[in-house]
């Protein structure tokens, strides 16, 4: 079941100039939210913004009835969302899309940029099944890997940065523990990163899921604007994804 409903901002945190998170509370019990699902967020009172913005569900607290979003400021809509403060209302259409399948006994979660967002809820879901994932986060520099302290309790944390300011220097695929006998990989982040991770997984015969971030209009499968060219034709990212198995996307991955 999908809902359209108002939340109240009850918490805000920022990392540097570009990343912030909002904690949103609802008066009623939240529906189940699978890791990797997202919300279509309304950007209010912004003349330049017409459509909602798709944002992953970063964290869920079923005791306090809160959801968290982790947002990177990249343009007019996200800049407007950054001005929200405690007590403000935010309208969401959620939970949308198909999330991660929670496969594997030794999973590796690889995130970059805003793509780290869904991995927190994902790591928690693995932990709830008694599996502590390895979490590899990459960025240009330490201050561009947001919210990393939140991940610490839910897995073994590894980092790469372009400038060596945190963890190992280089790309996520160059990390010394990148190829450490994992039986499943989940990845979300910039397209070149996801392609490199998925190519590796396909070559090694490791199952792999990627979470795509195509531009969306409706978020619920009605407009067909968000498609990805899969091996068997166009597939709707908002409804059949955003999480896809790498095996069906080999053309896209090897582009």
């Amino acid at each position: 079941m999908k809902y359209i409903t108002d939340f109240t901002v009850v918490g805000r945190e920022a990392w540097g100039e570009t990343y912030f998170s909002l904690t949103l509370q609802h008066p009623q019990t939240l529906p189940p939210v699978a890791a990797g699902q997202f919300a279509e967020v309304e950007v209010q009172d912004c003349r330049e913004v017409t459509l909602r913005r798709p944002i992953s569900i970063h964290d869920v607290d079923t005791v306090r009835n809160t959801l968290s979003l982790l947002v990177q400021i990249v343009g007019k809509g996200t800049r407007k969302l950054a001005t929200l403060r405690e007590g403000d209302k935010l309208n969401l259409v959620y939970p949308l899309g198909r999330g991660f399948a929670l496969r594997g006994e030794r999973p590796l979660l690889v995130g970059g940029g805003a793509g780290v967002a869904p991995l927190l809820h994902l790591a928690k879901c693995y932990c709830a099944r008694g599996i502590r994932p390895t979490i590899l986060l990459g960025g240009r520099s330490a201050d561009l890997i947001p919210a990393r302290e939140r991940f610490a309790p839910y897995g073994t944390l590894l980092y790469t940065t372009d400038d060596g300011s945190l963890g190992e220097r280089g790309l996520v695929t160059q990390h010394s523990h990148f190829d450490d006998g994992y039986d499943h990989i989940c990845t979300c982040g910039p397209t070149p990163m996801m392609r490199a991770v998925a190519r590796h997984a396909l070559q090694q015969g490791i199952s792999c899921e990627l979470s795509l971030e195509n531009m969306m209009a409706c978020g619920i499968g009605a407009c067909l604007c968000c498609v990805v060219k899969s091996d068997d034709g166009h597939r709707c990212v908002c409804k059949e994804g955003p999480v896809f198995d790498a095996t069906g996307l080999s053309q896209w991955i090897n582009q």
């Binding site: 003349r47 330049e48 913004v49 017409t50 459509l51 195509n214 531009m215 969306m216 209009a217 407009c223 067909l224 604007c225 968000c226 498609v227 990805v228 060219k229 034709g233 166009h234």
Partner: peptide, 23 residues
């Protein structure tokens, strides 16, 4: 029909452009 290639949508002031192409 497969429709047109992505990107098929662009937001514009008070509107949007689409090029779904009858998928």
């Amino acid at each position: 029909r497969q429709g047109n290639d992505y990107p098929r949508m662009a937001e514009t002031p008070a509107g949007m452009l689409n090029a779904v192409g009858l998928q």
